[in-house]
Design a protein around this nucleic acid. Structure first.
Length: 782
DNA sequence: ATTAGGG
DNA sequence: CCCTAAT
C-alpha cells in the first residue's frame, strides 16, 4: 500500500492520510496570542518539532498541546525491544523550561507511554537518545567497566579512518554542508577536534551542535546537557531554563519582551548547549558559503508584532526573518546554514531533516567505502551526488538564490505526489518532475525522491533485520527490505560490518553498523535488535542521567545493568559472546513448554469457581498460584520463534487457561467489554501477565470462536488440533450472549451463525442467569 | 494512560 | 501476542 503524503494546507505540515507512523501529528492547535501572549516570540512554529521526529523510527504517537505552554508528546512505549524507539536527536524547536519524563513503570506493561511535557520558551533542546549506544554502554559497563572510565565515549575517525580512540562507538567526523550533505572533515577540522579531545569531557559538546555528523549521540551529553538543571522533588527532570542562565527567564514571560534580549538569550543558550568549538566550525562552514554575505542582522521578530491571525492557520515560517529561519534551521538540523534563500530555508525546515540525513549518510557511506558500495542503490542516490559532493554548498546556494520565493505549498504537494506517483519507477527518472518545485537545492532533488516516502514500518526489528539480511543480496542487487511498502531499503539501517578492533584493549571485534545518527553516517556499535531478556521497561533508564541528581538515576542505570546481566545469563555463557549477540539464541522451543502447570492449576481453580456459585465474584480474589513468578525471565517462558525472514522473534506465549477464560467472561459480563483495565484490575489482579490488551485480544478471539463454532456445539473440542485448550461450548455460548447483549457482535460474525440454527437460543436470557449458566455448564464440563 | 484494531 | 493509532 502506498501511503500518500499530503501537505496540510493550513498548518503546512506534512501528514499522511493514514498510518503516517513516523510523523508527529498535533491534534490541536498551538497556543495563540490569546492563550499565550508571547507566542510569537516563543514559537517559531511548534510544529517543527515533529519533523525531527521523522528521523525517529517510530515512537512518537501523538502530540498535542496540553496547555498553552505545554506540549505533550505521546510516544509509543519501549514495551518490547522490537519497538524500542530510537529517539534520535529529538529536537524541540522551542526550549523547555521543564522537561519531564515519566511513565514506564517497571514491570508495568500497561504503562506504555512516555510523556514529555514541555514548558517552553524559545530555545532548542536536543535530546539525544540512541538506543544502540545505550546498549553498548550497558555492555561496556557490564563487562569492562574499568575501560569505560578512561575512555572517551566518542571515537572520532577522520575520513581516512586512521584515528580512533578506544571506544566501540565510532563517529565519523564530518562537516555538514549547508545543503545537508556530509563532507568528510578536513585535516584542519580534524585537528581542531583532536585538540578538543584532550578534554574528554567536553568532547561531546564539542562535536555536538556544530557537528551533527559527530553528533551528540553520546549518552553523557544528554546527561550533561541537563546537568545544570535541578531535578525537581518528584524525581522528574527539570530542565532549568537556559534563558535563566542567560538572564532571567521571567523576563521572557513578562508581557514585554526585549527582543534583543531574547535574541541574545537565544544565542547564549545555543552556546551553552553547543560546543566551544562552535565558533570555529561555524566559521569553516561559513567559509564555504562566503559568497553570501551575512544579512542576518535582523533580529527575531523584529518587525513589530507578528500577525497572529496568520499565525493561526498559516505557516509561521513565512513570518520569519532569514535570521530566524537560520535559527530555526539550526534548531531543526543542528547545524548552521548560510543559505539566505528564505524559501529554501523554509522548505528545508518544513520538510524536515529526515531524508537529508539519509541522503547524507548514503553519500557519506559511499565515499568512505565503508560498506558495500551503495551506488547500486538507484533509489537513494542521484547521479549528481557525485558532483555535488565536491562543493554542494555552493551549488545549492546558487540555486536557492535564483529561486523565487513564491513557492507555495502546492508545489510541495505537487512534488510529493508526483514522486509518489512515480514510486514505481526509479527515482532518477522522477527527477524531472522535481524541477517543478523551486527553491530546492540539488540536494532536495535527491531527497525529493525518497524523502516523503518514508514507509510505514510496523516492525522495526523485522525491517532492520531484513535490511541487514537483504539489503544487499549476494548478487549485490538491492532487495527491498520492506515487504509491503515497496520502498527501497531504508537508508537508516546499515548493514553490519566489522571494523578493526578499536584498541588493543579491545579483544573483541568491534561490530558496528552504519546509522544515520543525527543525520550523519556515524557508526554506532551494532547490537542485535532482538532483545533476549525481558523487554526493556524503561528506555529512559538507558540514558545516563548521572548528573541529574535525581534518585532516579542510579536505579535506572542499575536496571539497565541488570538487564544486561540477565541477557548474559540467558545467553549461553560465551566468553566471546560478543558476536554471538548477533544471533538470537533459541532459548527454548517447544509447544507445551511450561503450559502444563497452568492448565493444571486452571482446572483446580475452575472447580473453585464453580463451587462458589455464580454471583460470587469472590473468585476473583482467589489467588492463583500462577502468575507471580509468571513473566519472570526464568527462561522457561521465553521462547523464540523463527521469523519467516530468518530472524528470530521472541515470543512469550501463555496459553489461556480455562479459568482465565472464565474470569474474563465473568469480567466482561460484569463490567462490559471494553473496560479491560477494570477487568484486569479486578479479575486479573493476580495475573501479572495478561494485560488489559491481552484480555481484549482474548475476548476478541472468544468472540470469534463463539460465533464461528456454535453450530458445531458439542463437538467443539475436536475441530482442529488446537494448540491451546479448547473452549467449552457453553462458555462460548456465554460469550456470544454477552456479545449480543452488548451489541458488539459484528455482522460478519453474526451471519455465519444464523444458519447454524436450532441451537440453544434459550440461552439468551438476562445476564444474571447467563452468569450462572456459564458456571453451571462449565462445572458440568469439568 | 487506555482502548480499538490490524496483523 | 505485538504494534500502532486514537482517545
Amino acid at each position: 500500500m502506498i501511503v500518500q503524503y499530503k501537505y496540510h494546507p493550513n498548518s503546512g505540515h506534512e501528514y499522511t492520510d493514514h498510518s503516517s507512523r513516523h510523523q508527529l501529528q498535533l491534534n490541536n492547535n498551538p497556543p495563540t496570542q490569546e492563550t499565550y501572549p508571547d507566542a510569537n516570540l516563543l514559537f517559531h512554529k511548534p510544529i517543527y518539532i515533529p519533523f525531527r521526529f521523522r528521523n525517529c523510527i517510530s515512537s512518537i504517537n501523538t502530540a498535542y498541546w496540553k496547555s498553552a505552554t505545554q506540549l505533550q508528546f505521546n510516544s509509543i512505549p519501549p514495551k518490547s525491544y522490537n519497538s524500542f524507539p530510537l529517539f534520535k536527536n529529538l529536537i524541540f524547536v522551542f526550549s523547555a523550561t521543564e522537561l519531564k519524563f515519566w511513565g514506564n513503570q517497571r514491570l508495568q506493561r500497561s504503562n506504555q507511554s512516555v510523556f514529555a511535557f514541555l514548558h517552553f520558551y524559545a530555545f532548542v533542546i536536543e535530546l539525544h537518545v540512541v538506543e544502540c549506544y545505550m546498549e553498548t554502554l550497558v555492555a561496556i559497563e557490564g563487562s569492562e567497566k574499568s575501560k569505560l572510565e578512561g575512555t572517551s565515549a566518542i571515537v572520532i575517525t577522520c575520513s581516512d579512518s586512521s584515528k580512533q580512540i578506544a571506544d566501540p562507538v565510532v563517529y565519523k567526523l564530518a562537516r555538514v554542508e549547508g545543503d545537508g550533505r556530509l563532507v568528510p572533515a578536513t585535516d584542519d577540522e580534524v585537528m581542531e577536534v583532536e585538540d578538543l579531545l584532550d578534554d574528554k569531557s567536553s568532547v561531546h559538546f564539542v562535536l555536538d551542535t556544530c557537528q551533527p555528523a559527530v553528533c551528540v549521540s553520546n549518552h553523557e551529553t544528554f546527561g550533561q546537557e541537563f546537568m545544570t538543571m535541578p531535578a525537581d522533588s518528584q524525581g522528574l527532570f527539570k530542565v532549568k531554563d537556559p534563558c535563566t542562565l542567560g538572564g532571567g527567564s521571567d523576563t521572557v514571560f513578562g508581557t514585554t519582551v526585549d527582543l534583543g534580549k531574547l535574541n541574545s538569550q537565544f544565542e547564549e543558550i545555543g552556546r551553552s548547549v553547543s560546543s566551544p568549538v562552535d565558533g570555529k566550525i561555524e566559521e569553516s562552514g561559513d567559509r564555504k558559503g562566503s559568497g553570501e554575505s551575512e544579512p542576518s542582522t535582523s533580529t527575531m521578530c523584529v518587525n513589530g508584532k507578528p500577525d497572529f491571525s496568520k499565525l493561526k492557520g498559516e505557516i509561521c515560517l513565512d513570518n520569519l526573518s532569514v535570521r530566524e529561519l537560520h535559527a530555526t534551521f539550526k534548531a531543526t538540523f543542528g547545524r548552521e546554514t548560510s543559505v539566505k534563500d528564505k524559501q529554501w530555508l523554509k522548505r528545508r525546515i518544513s520538510m524536515g531533516l529526515s531524508n537529508s540525513c539519509d541522503v547524507s549518510t548514503t553519500t557519506f557511506i559511499i565515499e568512505n567505502n565503508i560498506i558495500t558500495k551503495k551506488p547500486k542503490v538507484e533509489e537513494d542516490c542521484n547521479l549528481n551526488n557525485e558532483n555535488e559532493k565536491e562543493d554542494p554548498f555552493v551549488i545549492s546556494v546558487g540555486q536557492s538564490q535564483s529561486q523565487s520565493q513564491s513557492v507555495d505549498n502546492h508545489n510541495h504537494n505537487h512534488m510529493e505526489n508526483d514522486q509518489l506517483g512515480g514510486s514505481s519507477r526509479s527515482v532518477q527518472s522522477g527527477t524531472t518532475p522535481k524541477n517543478h518545485h523551486i527553491g530546492i537545492g540539488s540536494e532536495d532533488d535527491k531527497e525529493g525522491g525518497k524523502r516523503v516516502r518514508k514507509p510505514t514500518k510496523r516492525y522495526i526489528e523485522v525491517s532492520e533485520s531484513e535490511s541487514r539480511d537483504r539489503e544487499y543480496s549476494g548478487s549485490g542487487r538491492l532487495v527491498s527490505s520492506v515487504k509491503s511498502s515497496g520502498h527501497g531499503p531504508r537508508t537508516r539501517v546499515r548493514p553490519i560490518h566489522n571494523i578493526q578492533p578499536v584498541t588493543s584493549t579491545t579483544t573483541r571485534p568491534l561490530v558496528t553498523r552504519q546509522d544515520s545518527l543525527g543525520g550523519s553516517g556515524v557508526e554506532i556499535p551494532y547490537v542485535s535488535r532482538i532483545r533476549r531478556g525481558r523487554p526493556r521497561e524503561n528506555f529512559m533508564a538507558l540514558m545516563k542521567f548521572q548528573s541529574c541528581g535525581t534518585g532516579i538515576t542510579p536505579k535506572l542505570v542499575k536496571t539497565a545493568h541488570d538487564d544486561e546481566v540477565e541477557n548474559r545469563e540467558l545467553k549461553t555463557a560465551l566468553p566471546t559472546g560478543w558476536v554471538q549477540l548477533q544471533q538470537p539464541v533459541i532459548i527454548k522451543e517447544g509447544v507445551g513448554g511450561g503450559s502444563e502447570e497452568y492448565s493444571e492449576e486452571a482446572s483446580g481453580e475452575l472447580k473453585n469457581d464453580s463451587e462458589e456459585g455464580e454471583g460470587q465474584m469472590d473468585s476473583y480474589d482467589d489467588v492463583e498460584a500462577e502468575d507471580d513468578s509468571d513473566d519472570n525471565d526464568n527462561g522457561n517462558n521465553i521462547l523464540t520463534v523463527p521469523t519467516a525472514k530468518g530472524g528470530m522473534r521472541r515470543k512469550h506465549h501463555r496459553p489461556w487457561t480455562l479459568s482465565e477464560v472464565v474470569k474474563l467472561v465473568e469480567g466482561v459480563s460484569r463490567y462490559g467489554a471494553g473496560r479491560w483495565s477494570e477487568i484486569k484490575r479486578i479479575a486479573f489482579s493476580t495475573c501479572s501477565h495478561r494485560t488489559p490488551v491481552d484480555l481484549k485480544d482474548k475476548w476478541r478471539n472468544l468472540l470469534r470462536a463463539s460465533f464461528a463454532q456454535l453450530p458445531a456445539e458439542k463437538g467443539v473440542q475436536n475441530s482442529k488440533k488446537q494448540s491451546s485448550i479448547p473452549i467449552p461450548a457453553p462458555i462460548l455460548l456465554r460469550v456470544r450472549e454477552l456479545a449480543e447483549m452488548q451489541s458488539q457482535v459484528s455482522p460478519d460474525l453474526k451471519q455465519p451463525h444464523r444458519f447454524g440454527g436450532g441451537h440453544n437460543h434459550n440461552h439468551n436470557h438476562n445476564s444474571n442467569s447467563g452468569s450462572r449458566n456459564v458456571n453451571d455448564i462449565k462445572s458440568g464440563f469439568l
